[in-house]
Computed example of a mutant assay.
Amino acid sequence: TSQLCAVSNCSEPRQWKQLFAECGKDSQSPINIVTSKVKMDWNLKPFTFEGYEKQTAKWVLENDGHSVKVTLQESAKITDGSLNSKYKATQFHFHWGSHGNWGSSPGSEHSIDGERYAMEVSEQSKFKVIGMGWQVNCILGVQMFSFQVGRKNTNYKPLIDQLQYIKAKGKKVQMEPLALKSLIPHEKNLTRYYRYAGSLTTPGCNEAVVWTVFEEPIELGQQQVQAFPTTVFFSTNLSLPMMDNFRPIQPLGNRTVYKSSAGAILPPAKALLVITIAYLMVTLFQ
């Protein structure tokens, strides 16, 4: 997903629609959320997280050639937030910008009022959403958290420390599991969020996703953020640092962005380097 094509067989985001027709459709992600144009949806309730307090089975941390992916070996569930059943977390992955002698650049996929955020967490799941005057049947849902550069976050240290073992594409390492609860904001701060219908941000860009964009940011230290673009590589021979592995903003078109009833607007983050974490969720059949 890098915007920088340094190899001959790379197809940057503007070329995706030539290879995958859905990437050129009208409900693509990510988007810029204009807070003055969002609509209140009183049906968007707070979320409930289960199994986020403790994990016991080891996680698998992997460089898959376009991101850093963490595969969970144990059940963690999410419900409410206008979801009609429980959903199981299976993996999450990161997106970030660039860092070098010239400075740093942001890497968030979504923006709010044109401002890029310091980090995102997105939980993908199968569910049906019914909001104010709208209904979306979707395959996946994505819960996204923003991150900002600030104080060092000790909760993320064990994960970031493992990056040195997955520098090359295809490398994997097992790590002790962390409490998922410690990686996201406190539950009481997760009542403010935006909701819209969109797509996956990687090919084939399936328009079967409902996005939930949380307002409460997560802090990481500057060095922690910089560890991603300076440690991990797109290549197996460590010749191409993994930077800017995100998709650019897509047109909103005729879509509407909704916000929860507790959706107070926070000031935009000013951090430069941005990371996105995507949590892959699959439906838990009961």
Rank of each mutant, 00 (worst) to 15 (best):
K181A: 01
I33M: 02
V68Y: 02
I112E: 05
D41F: 12
P229I: 01
V274K: 03
R151L: 14
Y193I: 01
I130K: 15
Q223P: 03
L273V: 10
N254W: 02
F147D: 01
Q250M: 14
Y52L: 09
E120V: 10
T256Q: 08
A197C: 06
V209Q: 08
A118M: 09
N9W: 14
C138V: 15
E215N: 06
V129M: 13
V149M: 04
T154R: 14
Q223H: 09
G221S: 08
S108L: 00
Q286G: 12
E109L: 07
F234Y: 12
F145M: 08
Q18N: 15
D113T: 08
R14M: 06
I184H: 02
S29M: 13
N63T: 01
L273G: 09
V232R: 00
W42V: 15
V282C: 09
A57K: 12
L183G: 01
L240R: 11
Y258G: 05
T79Y: 05
G204T: 12
E12L: 09
T202E: 06
G107R: 02
Q174V: 09
A271W: 00
L240E: 08
F147W: 11
N63C: 03
L238Y: 03
F214K: 00
T35Q: 09
C5D: 11
G107W: 00
Y258F: 15
G198A: 09
H186Y: 06
T212W: 03
I184A: 02
C10T: 07
L266F: 03
L163G: 07
S125N: 03
K259T: 11
E109S: 11
L178I: 10
L252W: 12
N137M: 15
V149C: 02
I160E: 06
E120T: 12
P46R: 02
P248D: 10
V136S: 13
V213H: 11
K172D: 00
L180C: 00
K88G: 10
R151P: 11
S85I: 01
Y87L: 03
P229G: 00
Y87R: 09
R151G: 14
R255K: 10
E115L: 05
N153L: 00
Y196I: 04
P203T: 07
L252D: 13
S146D: 00
K69D: 02
W211S: 11
A6L: 15
G51W: 01
L83C: 03
A262H: 12
V7I: 15
P229W: 01
D41C: 14
M119V: 01
R14T: 08
M175C: 06
V142I: 12
K37L: 13
S105T: 12
E50I: 06
S85G: 07
R14H: 10
D41I: 11
N254T: 04
A208H: 13
L72S: 07
